[in-house]
Simulated scan of single mutants.
Amino acid sequence: MSAVYSVDVRIAAPVNDTEVTDRVADAVRTLFPEADPEQRPGELAAEVHTMDGFSQLLHEYEILDTARSVFFDSLSGDRFAFDLKKQAAFEGRVNFAVGDPSELGDIHVEVIVREPDAESYIDYVAPPTEDGTPVDTE
């Protein structure tokens, strides 16, 4: 039996004058296939209630340990946040942004976990690994 998660995932991506809005929306949907970005002044925003598509990418690119580190570094109570490189997303890749934001701006993601708890949800999205292979924690 799998756990039921109640999460709100808020995604915001700046759209610069030199960028095509639809291309930025495609980049967001590449990382979060469930997203339907809406245009706001200077940005695209979306809210989804799952990170399953993103989790599949983390598994595919074998960056679960990196993701866990980023998620736990920002964990505060029931929420965590992270930034992703927009240029990498244009190319269909996941690249966590650290340090100064890129020239085009980064995709900002905030995750609020209502049920059961943020640590369990992180384990679901990016499970612990041993020698790079996900470990069954149940």
Results as ranks from 00 to 15, higher is better:
residue 69 S to D: 15
residue 63 I to A: 09
residue 33 P to E: 06
residue 49 H to Q: 13
residue 60 E to R: 15
residue 59 H to R: 15
residue 69 S to G: 09
residue 56 Q to L: 09
residue 65 D to L: 03
residue 39 Q to C: 01
residue 50 T to M: 01
residue 57 L to D: 06
residue 65 D to F: 02
residue 52 D to Y: 03
residue 58 L to A: 04
residue 31 L to S: 09
residue 43 E to R: 15
residue 54 F to G: 08
residue 50 T to Y: 01
residue 67 A to V: 02
residue 28 V to T: 11
residue 58 L to E: 08
residue 29 R to W: 00
residue 34 E to V: 03
residue 65 D to T: 15
residue 30 T to N: 13
residue 34 E to I: 03
residue 57 L to P: 07
residue 33 P to M: 00
residue 48 V to I: 13
residue 38 E to P: 01
residue 69 S to C: 05
residue 53 G to F: 03
residue 69 S to Y: 08
residue 48 V to A: 03
residue 28 V to N: 15
residue 49 H to R: 15
residue 65 D to P: 02
residue 53 G to D: 09
residue 33 P to A: 01
residue 64 L to F: 04
residue 53 G to N: 08
residue 41 P to W: 04
residue 28 V to Y: 10
residue 47 E to W: 00
residue 53 G to C: 02
residue 68 R to E: 05
residue 32 F to D: 07
residue 55 S to M: 01
residue 67 A to N: 04
residue 42 G to S: 10
residue 34 E to S: 06
residue 66 T to Q: 13
residue 67 A to K: 04
residue 65 D to H: 10
residue 29 R to T: 13
residue 53 G to S: 07
residue 67 A to Q: 05
residue 50 T to L: 01
residue 39 Q to T: 14
residue 42 G to H: 09
residue 40 R to I: 15
residue 68 R to T: 03
residue 61 Y to F: 15
residue 59 H to L: 11
residue 36 D to W: 00
residue 34 E to K: 06
residue 51 M to K: 09
residue 31 L to M: 07
residue 32 F to M: 06
residue 43 E to I: 03
residue 49 H to V: 06
residue 31 L to C: 05
residue 63 I to K: 14
residue 56 Q to A: 13
residue 57 L to M: 14
residue 61 Y to N: 14
residue 49 H to D: 14
residue 58 L to C: 05
residue 68 R to M: 07
residue 60 E to W: 06
residue 31 L to D: 08
residue 62 E to C: 12
residue 70 V to S: 02
residue 62 E to K: 14
residue 49 H to T: 12
residue 45 A to H: 11
residue 35 A to W: 02
residue 59 H to G: 11
residue 59 H to S: 11
residue 66 T to G: 05
residue 44 L to H: 10
residue 51 M to E: 09
residue 69 S to R: 15
residue 70 V to L: 02
residue 28 V to R: 15
residue 57 L to W: 08
residue 56 Q to Y: 08
residue 62 E to G: 12
residue 37 P to G: 04
residue 31 L to W: 06
residue 57 L to Y: 11
residue 28 V to S: 13
residue 43 E to G: 01
residue 56 Q to H: 13
residue 56 Q to T: 09
residue 39 Q to K: 12
residue 67 A to F: 02
residue 63 I to C: 14
residue 38 E to S: 10
residue 33 P to F: 00
residue 54 F to W: 07
residue 64 L to Y: 07
residue 55 S to F: 02
residue 58 L to K: 10
residue 69 S to H: 11
residue 55 S to T: 07
residue 40 R to D: 13
residue 44 L to Y: 08
residue 32 F to L: 06
residue 57 L to I: 10
residue 36 D to Y: 02
residue 48 V to R: 04
residue 70 V to Y: 06
residue 37 P to C: 02
residue 28 V to Q: 15
residue 42 G to T: 12
residue 38 E to R: 12
residue 30 T to I: 03
residue 29 R to F: 00
residue 28 V to E: 12
residue 36 D to F: 00
residue 29 R to C: 02
residue 51 M to W: 03
residue 34 E to Q: 06
residue 54 F to N: 10
residue 36 D to R: 13
